[in-house]
Design a protein around this nucleic acid. Sequence first.
DNA 1: CCTTATCATTGAACTGCGTTCATTAAAGTG
DNA 2: CACTTTAATGAACGCAGTTCAATGATAAGG
Lengths: 199, 199
Amino acid sequence: MATKTEIRRQELRDKLIVIAERTIAQNGLSALRARDLAGEAGCAVGAIYNVFGDLTDLTLAVNARTFHRLGAEVAEALAAAPEDPVEQLVVMAQAYHHFAASNHLSWRALFDVERPAGEAAPDWYLAEMGQLFTYISDPLAVIFPEREAEELALLTRALFSSVHGIVLLGLDEASAGVSTGKIDHMIALVLRQFTASRK
Amino acid sequence: MATKTEIRRQELRDKLIVIAERTIAQNGLSALRARDLAGEAGCAVGAIYNVFGDLTDLTLAVNARTFHRLGAEVAEALAAAPEDPVEQLVVMAQAYHHFAASNHLSWRALFDVERPAGEAAPDWYLAEMGQLFTYISDPLAVIFPEREAEELALLTRALFSSVHGIVLLGLDEASAGVSTGKIDHMIALVLRQFTASRK
DNA sequence: CCTTATCATTGAACTGCGTTCATTAAAGTG
DNA sequence: CACTTTAATGAACGCAGTTCAATGATAAGG
Protein backbone atom coordinates (compact mmCIF):
# COMPACT_ATOMS: atom_id res chain seq x y z
CA MET A 1 0.00 0.00 0.00
CA ALA A 2 1.10 3.51 -0.78
CA THR A 3 -0.13 5.30 2.33
CA LYS A 4 2.55 8.02 2.37
CA THR A 5 1.73 8.96 -1.19
CA GLU A 6 -1.99 8.66 -0.80
CA ILE A 7 -2.03 10.92 2.25
CA ARG A 8 0.06 13.53 0.50
CA ARG A 9 -2.22 13.39 -2.51
CA GLN A 10 -5.31 13.75 -0.41
CA GLU A 11 -3.80 16.72 1.38
CA LEU A 12 -2.85 18.37 -1.90
CA ARG A 13 -6.30 17.66 -3.27
CA ASP A 14 -7.94 19.36 -0.32
CA LYS A 15 -5.53 22.29 -0.40
CA LEU A 16 -6.15 22.85 -4.10
CA ILE A 17 -9.90 22.77 -3.62
CA VAL A 18 -9.70 25.34 -0.83
CA ILE A 19 -7.49 27.65 -2.89
CA ALA A 20 -9.62 27.23 -6.01
CA GLU A 21 -12.76 27.87 -3.98
CA ARG A 22 -11.35 31.14 -2.67
CA THR A 23 -10.05 32.19 -6.08
CA ILE A 24 -13.38 31.56 -7.77
CA ALA A 25 -15.32 33.26 -4.98
CA GLN A 26 -13.12 36.36 -5.07
CA ASN A 27 -12.22 36.70 -8.74
CA GLY A 28 -14.38 34.30 -10.70
CA LEU A 29 -13.81 31.14 -12.64
CA SER A 30 -11.72 32.91 -15.26
CA ALA A 31 -9.15 33.80 -12.58
CA LEU A 32 -8.39 30.13 -11.95
CA ARG A 33 -4.91 29.57 -13.42
CA ALA A 34 -2.75 26.49 -13.08
CA ARG A 35 0.47 28.41 -12.37
CA ASP A 36 -1.09 30.68 -9.76
CA LEU A 37 -2.71 27.66 -8.16
CA ALA A 38 0.59 25.79 -7.99
CA GLY A 39 2.31 28.89 -6.63
CA GLU A 40 -0.23 29.31 -3.83
CA ALA A 41 -0.30 25.62 -3.00
CA GLY A 42 3.49 25.40 -3.03
CA CYS A 43 3.55 22.58 -5.55
CA ALA A 44 4.58 22.06 -9.15
CA VAL A 45 2.09 22.74 -11.92
CA GLY A 46 2.27 19.10 -12.91
CA ALA A 47 1.23 18.08 -9.39
CA ILE A 48 -2.23 19.47 -10.05
CA TYR A 49 -2.58 16.94 -12.85
CA ASN A 50 -1.55 14.07 -10.57
CA VAL A 51 -4.58 14.83 -8.44
CA PHE A 52 -7.15 16.22 -10.91
CA GLY A 53 -7.56 15.28 -14.55
CA ASP A 54 -7.62 18.94 -15.51
CA LEU A 55 -8.75 22.30 -14.17
CA THR A 56 -12.34 21.51 -15.09
CA ASP A 57 -12.25 18.53 -12.72
CA LEU A 58 -10.99 20.81 -9.98
CA THR A 59 -13.74 23.30 -10.78
CA LEU A 60 -16.30 20.51 -10.57
CA ALA A 61 -15.00 19.60 -7.12
CA VAL A 62 -15.45 23.22 -6.04
CA ASN A 63 -18.89 23.31 -7.65
CA ALA A 64 -19.96 20.22 -5.74
CA ARG A 65 -19.20 22.03 -2.49
CA THR A 66 -20.89 25.22 -3.67
CA PHE A 67 -24.00 23.32 -4.70
CA HIS A 68 -24.03 21.55 -1.36
CA ARG A 69 -23.85 24.86 0.53
CA LEU A 70 -26.66 26.15 -1.67
CA GLY A 71 -28.82 23.15 -0.88
CA ALA A 72 -28.11 23.51 2.83
CA GLU A 73 -29.13 27.18 2.85
CA VAL A 74 -32.36 26.46 1.01
CA ALA A 75 -33.10 23.60 3.42
CA GLU A 76 -32.39 25.85 6.38
CA ALA A 77 -34.73 28.53 5.04
CA LEU A 78 -37.41 25.90 4.45
CA ALA A 79 -37.06 24.60 8.01
CA ALA A 80 -37.64 28.12 9.37
CA ALA A 81 -40.54 28.81 6.99
CA PRO A 82 -44.22 28.97 7.98
CA GLU A 83 -46.63 26.11 7.35
CA ASP A 84 -48.22 27.78 4.35
CA PRO A 85 -46.94 26.04 1.21
CA VAL A 86 -47.00 29.21 -0.88
CA GLU A 87 -44.87 30.97 1.72
CA GLN A 88 -42.52 28.01 1.71
CA LEU A 89 -42.01 28.37 -2.03
CA VAL A 90 -41.39 32.09 -1.68
CA VAL A 91 -38.96 31.63 1.21
CA MET A 92 -36.99 28.95 -0.64
CA ALA A 93 -36.82 30.95 -3.84
CA GLN A 94 -35.62 34.00 -1.98
CA ALA A 95 -33.06 31.85 -0.18
CA TYR A 96 -31.88 30.72 -3.61
CA HIS A 97 -31.63 34.34 -4.65
CA HIS A 98 -29.84 35.29 -1.46
CA PHE A 99 -27.28 32.55 -1.91
CA ALA A 100 -26.68 33.50 -5.53
CA ALA A 101 -26.28 37.16 -4.62
CA SER A 102 -23.96 36.49 -1.67
CA ASN A 103 -21.88 33.97 -3.59
CA HIS A 104 -22.24 35.45 -7.02
CA LEU A 105 -19.03 34.31 -8.65
CA SER A 106 -19.12 30.86 -7.05
CA TRP A 107 -22.74 30.49 -8.09
CA ARG A 108 -21.94 31.51 -11.66
CA ALA A 109 -19.14 28.96 -11.77
CA LEU A 110 -21.84 26.29 -11.30
CA PHE A 111 -23.09 27.09 -14.77
CA ASP A 112 -20.04 28.54 -16.49
CA VAL A 113 -17.89 25.43 -16.15
CA GLU A 114 -17.15 23.78 -19.50
CA ARG A 115 -19.29 20.73 -19.92
CA PRO A 116 -18.62 18.42 -22.86
CA ALA A 117 -21.73 18.52 -25.04
CA GLY A 118 -24.13 15.65 -24.60
CA GLU A 119 -22.36 14.26 -21.55
CA ALA A 120 -24.36 13.19 -18.50
CA ALA A 121 -24.25 15.50 -15.48
CA PRO A 122 -22.23 14.19 -12.49
CA ASP A 123 -24.03 12.10 -9.87
CA TRP A 124 -23.60 14.65 -7.07
CA TYR A 125 -25.27 17.24 -9.29
CA LEU A 126 -28.28 15.04 -9.99
CA ALA A 127 -28.52 14.11 -6.30
CA GLU A 128 -28.47 17.71 -5.03
CA MET A 129 -30.81 18.77 -7.81
CA GLY A 130 -33.22 15.99 -6.90
CA GLN A 131 -33.16 17.18 -3.31
CA LEU A 132 -33.99 20.75 -4.36
CA PHE A 133 -36.81 19.46 -6.54
CA THR A 134 -38.26 17.57 -3.60
CA TYR A 135 -38.27 20.73 -1.50
CA ILE A 136 -40.30 22.37 -4.26
CA SER A 137 -42.64 19.56 -5.22
CA ASP A 138 -43.79 18.90 -1.63
CA PRO A 139 -45.47 22.27 -1.13
CA LEU A 140 -46.62 22.20 -4.76
CA ALA A 141 -48.44 18.92 -4.10
CA VAL A 142 -50.28 20.61 -1.24
CA ILE A 143 -51.19 23.62 -3.36
CA PHE A 144 -52.30 21.54 -6.36
CA PRO A 145 -53.71 18.32 -4.90
CA GLU A 146 -55.66 17.50 -8.06
CA ARG A 147 -52.69 17.38 -10.40
CA GLU A 148 -51.03 14.19 -11.55
CA ALA A 149 -47.53 13.30 -10.40
CA GLU A 150 -46.14 13.77 -13.87
CA GLU A 151 -47.57 17.23 -14.20
CA LEU A 152 -46.36 18.14 -10.73
CA ALA A 153 -42.86 17.11 -11.77
CA LEU A 154 -43.13 19.37 -14.78
CA LEU A 155 -44.45 22.21 -12.61
CA THR A 156 -41.57 21.71 -10.22
CA ARG A 157 -38.97 21.98 -12.94
CA ALA A 158 -40.78 24.90 -14.50
CA LEU A 159 -40.90 26.86 -11.25
CA PHE A 160 -37.30 26.14 -10.43
CA SER A 161 -36.27 27.27 -13.89
CA SER A 162 -38.38 30.38 -13.59
CA VAL A 163 -36.83 31.45 -10.32
CA HIS A 164 -33.40 30.60 -11.70
CA GLY A 165 -34.07 32.79 -14.72
CA ILE A 166 -35.25 35.70 -12.59
CA VAL A 167 -32.16 35.47 -10.40
CA LEU A 168 -29.82 34.99 -13.36
CA LEU A 169 -30.98 37.99 -15.36
CA GLY A 170 -31.61 40.00 -12.20
CA LEU A 171 -28.07 39.60 -10.90
CA ASP A 172 -26.68 40.46 -14.33
CA GLU A 173 -28.19 43.88 -13.91
CA ALA A 174 -27.68 43.96 -10.17
CA SER A 175 -23.97 44.18 -10.89
CA ALA A 176 -24.85 47.30 -12.89
CA GLY A 177 -26.55 48.78 -9.84
CA VAL A 178 -30.14 47.50 -10.03
CA SER A 179 -31.68 46.89 -6.65
CA THR A 180 -31.65 43.39 -5.21
CA GLY A 181 -35.01 44.05 -3.60
CA LYS A 182 -36.61 44.07 -7.03
CA ILE A 183 -35.47 40.50 -7.58
CA ASP A 184 -37.14 39.36 -4.35
CA HIS A 185 -40.19 41.30 -5.44
CA MET A 186 -40.29 39.59 -8.84
CA ILE A 187 -39.89 36.18 -7.25
CA ALA A 188 -42.74 36.79 -4.83
CA LEU A 189 -44.88 38.27 -7.62
CA VAL A 190 -44.46 35.24 -9.85
CA LEU A 191 -44.91 32.62 -7.14
CA ARG A 192 -47.91 34.30 -5.52
CA GLN A 193 -49.61 34.94 -8.82
CA PHE A 194 -48.78 31.44 -10.00
CA THR A 195 -50.38 29.90 -6.91
CA ALA A 196 -53.26 32.38 -6.65
CA SER A 197 -55.57 30.01 -8.49
CA ARG A 198 -55.19 26.57 -6.93
CA LYS A 199 -56.26 24.20 -9.65
CA MET B 1 -11.53 60.81 -48.84
CA ALA B 2 -10.49 57.20 -48.57
CA THR B 3 -13.28 55.52 -50.52
CA LYS B 4 -11.21 52.62 -51.87
CA THR B 5 -10.13 51.69 -48.37
CA GLU B 6 -13.49 52.27 -46.78
CA ILE B 7 -15.25 50.04 -49.27
CA ARG B 8 -12.72 47.28 -48.79
CA ARG B 9 -13.08 47.53 -45.03
CA GLN B 10 -16.83 47.42 -45.19
CA GLU B 11 -16.66 44.36 -47.42
CA LEU B 12 -14.24 42.64 -45.08
CA ARG B 13 -16.42 43.58 -42.14
CA ASP B 14 -19.46 42.02 -43.75
CA LYS B 15 -17.55 38.95 -44.86
CA LEU B 16 -16.18 38.39 -41.35
CA ILE B 17 -19.62 38.73 -39.80
CA VAL B 18 -21.07 36.18 -42.21
CA ILE B 19 -18.26 33.71 -41.55
CA ALA B 20 -18.41 34.25 -37.79
CA GLU B 21 -22.18 33.86 -37.87
CA ARG B 22 -21.88 30.51 -39.62
CA THR B 23 -19.05 29.33 -37.38
CA ILE B 24 -20.96 30.18 -34.21
CA ALA B 25 -24.17 28.65 -35.53
CA GLN B 26 -22.46 25.41 -36.52
CA ASN B 27 -19.81 24.96 -33.85
CA GLY B 28 -20.45 27.49 -31.12
CA LEU B 29 -18.75 30.59 -29.84
CA SER B 30 -15.71 28.66 -28.65
CA ALA B 31 -14.98 27.62 -32.25
CA LEU B 32 -14.45 31.22 -33.30
CA ARG B 33 -10.68 31.53 -33.88
CA ALA B 34 -8.82 34.45 -35.40
CA ARG B 35 -6.58 32.31 -37.63
CA ASP B 36 -9.43 30.17 -38.96
CA LEU B 37 -11.43 33.31 -39.58
CA ALA B 38 -8.59 34.95 -41.50
CA GLY B 39 -8.06 31.76 -43.48
CA GLU B 40 -11.71 31.54 -44.51
CA ALA B 41 -11.96 35.24 -45.29
CA GLY B 42 -8.70 35.19 -47.26
CA CYS B 43 -7.17 37.97 -45.22
CA ALA B 44 -4.37 38.39 -42.71
CA VAL B 45 -5.08 37.86 -39.02
CA GLY B 46 -4.18 41.48 -38.40
CA ALA B 47 -6.85 42.60 -40.87
CA ILE B 48 -9.52 41.43 -38.44
CA TYR B 49 -8.19 43.95 -35.97
CA ASN B 50 -8.34 46.76 -38.51
CA VAL B 51 -12.07 46.23 -38.72
CA PHE B 52 -13.04 45.02 -35.24
CA GLY B 53 -11.43 45.95 -31.95
CA ASP B 54 -11.20 42.31 -30.99
CA LEU B 55 -13.07 39.04 -31.43
CA THR B 56 -15.58 40.06 -28.80
CA ASP B 57 -16.57 43.05 -30.94
CA LEU B 58 -17.08 40.71 -33.87
CA THR B 59 -19.16 38.42 -31.68
CA LEU B 60 -21.26 41.38 -30.59
CA ALA B 61 -21.90 42.24 -34.25
CA VAL B 62 -23.08 38.68 -34.83
CA ASN B 63 -25.16 38.80 -31.66
CA ALA B 64 -26.87 41.98 -32.80
CA ARG B 65 -28.05 40.15 -35.91
CA THR B 66 -29.08 37.08 -33.95
CA PHE B 67 -31.04 39.18 -31.49
CA HIS B 68 -32.71 41.00 -34.35
CA ARG B 69 -33.76 37.71 -35.97
CA LEU B 70 -35.07 36.57 -32.61
CA GLY B 71 -37.13 39.72 -32.21
CA ALA B 72 -38.50 39.38 -35.73
CA GLU B 73 -39.62 35.79 -35.13
CA VAL B 74 -41.34 36.70 -31.90
CA ALA B 75 -43.05 39.64 -33.61
CA GLU B 76 -44.14 37.39 -36.45
CA ALA B 77 -45.60 34.87 -34.02
CA LEU B 78 -47.39 37.65 -32.18
CA ALA B 79 -48.88 38.99 -35.42
CA ALA B 80 -50.32 35.55 -36.18
CA ALA B 81 -51.57 35.00 -32.62
CA PRO B 82 -55.21 35.12 -31.51
CA GLU B 83 -56.75 38.13 -29.76
CA ASP B 84 -56.62 36.51 -26.35
CA PRO B 85 -53.78 38.11 -24.39
CA VAL B 86 -52.92 34.90 -22.52
CA GLU B 87 -52.61 33.06 -25.81
CA GLN B 88 -50.42 35.86 -27.10
CA LEU B 89 -48.04 35.40 -24.19
CA VAL B 90 -47.93 31.65 -24.74
CA VAL B 91 -47.38 32.00 -28.48
CA MET B 92 -44.57 34.50 -28.00
CA ALA B 93 -42.86 32.44 -25.32
CA GLN B 94 -43.03 29.35 -27.48
CA ALA B 95 -41.66 31.35 -30.39
CA TYR B 96 -38.79 32.35 -28.12
CA HIS B 97 -38.26 28.70 -27.29
CA HIS B 98 -38.48 27.68 -30.92
CA PHE B 99 -35.90 30.23 -31.93
CA ALA B 100 -33.54 29.20 -29.14
CA ALA B 101 -33.92 25.53 -30.05
CA SER B 102 -33.45 26.08 -33.78
CA ASN B 103 -30.52 28.43 -33.30
CA HIS B 104 -29.13 26.91 -30.15
CA LEU B 105 -25.46 27.82 -30.45
CA SER B 106 -26.16 31.30 -31.86
CA TRP B 107 -28.66 31.89 -29.09
CA ARG B 108 -26.20 30.76 -26.44
CA ALA B 109 -23.60 33.13 -27.87
CA LEU B 110 -25.95 35.98 -26.93
CA PHE B 111 -25.26 35.22 -23.28
CA ASP B 112 -21.85 33.55 -23.39
CA VAL B 113 -20.01 36.51 -24.88
CA GLU B 114 -17.51 38.06 -22.48
CA ARG B 115 -18.90 41.23 -21.02
CA PRO B 116 -16.63 43.46 -18.94
CA ALA B 117 -18.10 43.52 -15.42
CA GLY B 118 -20.23 46.54 -14.62
CA GLU B 119 -20.23 47.86 -18.18
CA ALA B 120 -23.45 49.09 -19.76
CA ALA B 121 -25.07 46.85 -22.35
CA PRO B 122 -24.86 48.05 -25.99
CA ASP B 123 -27.62 50.29 -27.32
CA TRP B 124 -28.90 47.78 -29.87
CA TYR B 125 -29.30 45.27 -27.05
CA LEU B 126 -31.33 47.65 -24.93
CA ALA B 127 -33.43 48.64 -27.95
CA GLU B 128 -34.29 45.07 -28.98
CA MET B 129 -34.89 44.11 -25.36
CA GLY B 130 -37.21 47.07 -24.92
CA GLN B 131 -39.14 45.95 -27.98
CA LEU B 132 -39.52 42.42 -26.60
CA PHE B 133 -40.67 43.85 -23.29
CA THR B 134 -43.32 45.89 -25.05
CA TYR B 135 -44.65 42.77 -26.76
CA ILE B 136 -45.01 41.21 -23.32
CA SER B 137 -46.32 44.16 -21.33
CA ASP B 138 -49.12 44.97 -23.79
CA PRO B 139 -51.04 41.72 -23.26
CA LEU B 140 -50.12 41.81 -19.58
CA ALA B 141 -51.77 45.20 -19.24
CA VAL B 142 -54.95 43.70 -20.68
CA ILE B 143 -54.81 40.72 -18.33
CA PHE B 144 -54.03 42.81 -15.23
CA PRO B 145 -55.80 46.14 -15.80
CA GLU B 146 -55.73 47.03 -12.11
CA ARG B 147 -51.97 46.91 -11.67
CA GLU B 148 -49.76 49.96 -11.62
CA ALA B 149 -47.35 50.65 -14.45
CA GLU B 150 -44.36 50.01 -12.23
CA GLU B 151 -45.62 46.64 -11.12
CA LEU B 152 -46.49 45.74 -14.71
CA ALA B 153 -42.91 46.50 -15.68
CA LEU B 154 -41.70 44.20 -12.94
CA LEU B 155 -44.15 41.52 -14.02
CA THR B 156 -42.94 41.86 -17.58
CA ARG B 157 -39.31 41.37 -16.63
CA ALA B 158 -40.22 38.54 -14.29
CA LEU B 159 -42.17 36.66 -16.95
CA PHE B 160 -39.49 37.15 -19.56
CA SER B 161 -36.88 35.89 -17.12
CA SER B 162 -39.04 32.92 -16.21
CA VAL B 163 -39.51 31.84 -19.79
CA HIS B 164 -35.83 32.42 -20.43
CA GLY B 165 -34.95 30.21 -17.47
CA ILE B 166 -37.25 27.43 -18.61
CA VAL B 167 -35.77 27.50 -22.09
CA LEU B 168 -32.20 27.77 -20.82
CA LEU B 169 -32.32 24.82 -18.45
CA GLY B 170 -34.66 22.91 -20.75
CA LEU B 171 -32.31 23.10 -23.73
CA ASP B 172 -29.37 22.09 -21.55
CA GLU B 173 -31.10 18.78 -21.03
CA ALA B 174 -32.64 18.73 -24.48
CA SER B 175 -29.13 18.26 -25.82
CA ALA B 176 -29.02 15.17 -23.59
CA GLY B 177 -32.16 13.86 -25.25
CA VAL B 178 -35.02 15.37 -23.23
CA SER B 179 -38.08 16.13 -25.30
CA THR B 180 -38.58 19.65 -26.64
CA GLY B 181 -42.32 19.24 -26.21
CA LYS B 182 -41.87 19.28 -22.46
CA ILE B 183 -40.39 22.76 -22.66
CA ASP B 184 -43.43 24.06 -24.55
CA HIS B 185 -45.58 22.32 -21.99
CA MET B 186 -43.75 23.96 -19.08
CA ILE B 187 -44.02 27.37 -20.71
CA ALA B 188 -47.76 27.00 -21.24
CA LEU B 189 -48.21 25.62 -17.75
CA VAL B 190 -46.46 28.55 -16.12
CA LEU B 191 -48.10 31.25 -18.23
CA ARG B 192 -51.62 29.81 -18.00
CA GLN B 193 -51.37 29.22 -14.29
CA PHE B 194 -49.81 32.63 -13.79
CA THR B 195 -52.69 34.33 -15.60
CA ALA B 196 -55.43 32.06 -14.26
CA SER B 197 -56.26 34.53 -11.51
CA ARG B 198 -56.53 37.98 -13.08
CA LYS B 199 -55.83 40.34 -10.25
C1' DC C 1 20.84 -0.57 7.22
C1' DC C 2 21.93 -0.51 2.51
C1' DT C 3 20.68 -1.57 -2.39
C1' DT C 4 17.86 -1.53 -5.90
C1' DA C 5 13.51 -1.43 -8.42
C1' DT C 6 9.38 0.95 -8.64
C1' DC C 7 6.65 4.71 -8.44
C1' DA C 8 5.67 9.83 -7.76
C1' DT C 9 7.03 14.62 -8.53
C1' DT C 10 8.91 18.11 -11.06
C1' DG C 11 9.10 22.20 -14.15
C1' DA C 12 10.88 23.18 -18.67
C1' DA C 13 8.95 22.55 -23.04
C1' DC C 14 4.95 22.06 -26.21
C1' DT C 15 0.69 23.58 -28.22
C1' DG C 16 -2.80 26.80 -29.24
C1' DC C 17 -4.81 30.96 -28.57
C1' DG C 18 -5.65 36.35 -29.04
C1' DT C 19 -3.34 40.26 -30.03
C1' DT C 20 0.43 43.51 -31.59
C1' DC C 21 3.58 46.10 -34.45
C1' DA C 22 7.76 46.65 -37.45
C1' DT C 23 7.76 45.88 -42.15
C1' DT C 24 5.89 46.01 -46.65
C1' DA C 25 2.54 47.40 -50.01
C1' DA C 26 -1.00 50.48 -51.59
C1' DA C 27 -3.35 54.82 -52.09
C1' DG C 28 -3.64 59.49 -52.48
C1' DT C 29 -1.41 64.02 -53.92
C1' DG C 30 1.10 67.80 -56.39
C1' DC D 1 5.94 60.23 -62.08
C1' DA D 2 7.91 61.11 -57.38
C1' DC D 3 6.71 61.36 -52.85
C1' DT D 4 4.01 61.28 -48.61
C1' DT D 5 0.63 59.21 -46.04
C1' DT D 6 -2.04 55.55 -44.91
C1' DA D 7 -3.39 50.62 -44.77
C1' DA D 8 -2.42 45.55 -44.76
C1' DT D 9 0.54 41.99 -43.50
C1' DG D 10 2.06 37.93 -40.80
C1' DA D 11 5.92 36.77 -37.86
C1' DA D 12 6.52 37.41 -33.15
C1' DC D 13 4.82 38.11 -28.32
C1' DG D 14 2.49 36.90 -24.09
C1' DC D 15 -0.14 33.92 -21.72
C1' DA D 16 -2.88 30.16 -21.03
C1' DG D 17 -3.49 24.55 -20.19
C1' DT D 18 -1.26 20.45 -20.48
C1' DT D 19 2.56 16.93 -21.06
C1' DC D 20 6.57 14.03 -20.19
C1' DA D 21 11.68 13.06 -19.87
C1' DA D 22 14.48 13.69 -16.02
C1' DT D 23 14.92 13.76 -11.10
C1' DG D 24 13.85 12.42 -6.55
C1' DA D 25 11.33 9.64 -3.09
C1' DT D 26 9.42 5.37 -1.53
C1' DA D 27 8.90 0.64 -0.60
C1' DA D 28 10.80 -4.20 -0.88
C1' DG D 29 14.54 -7.59 -0.34
C1' DG D 30 18.82 -9.05 1.41
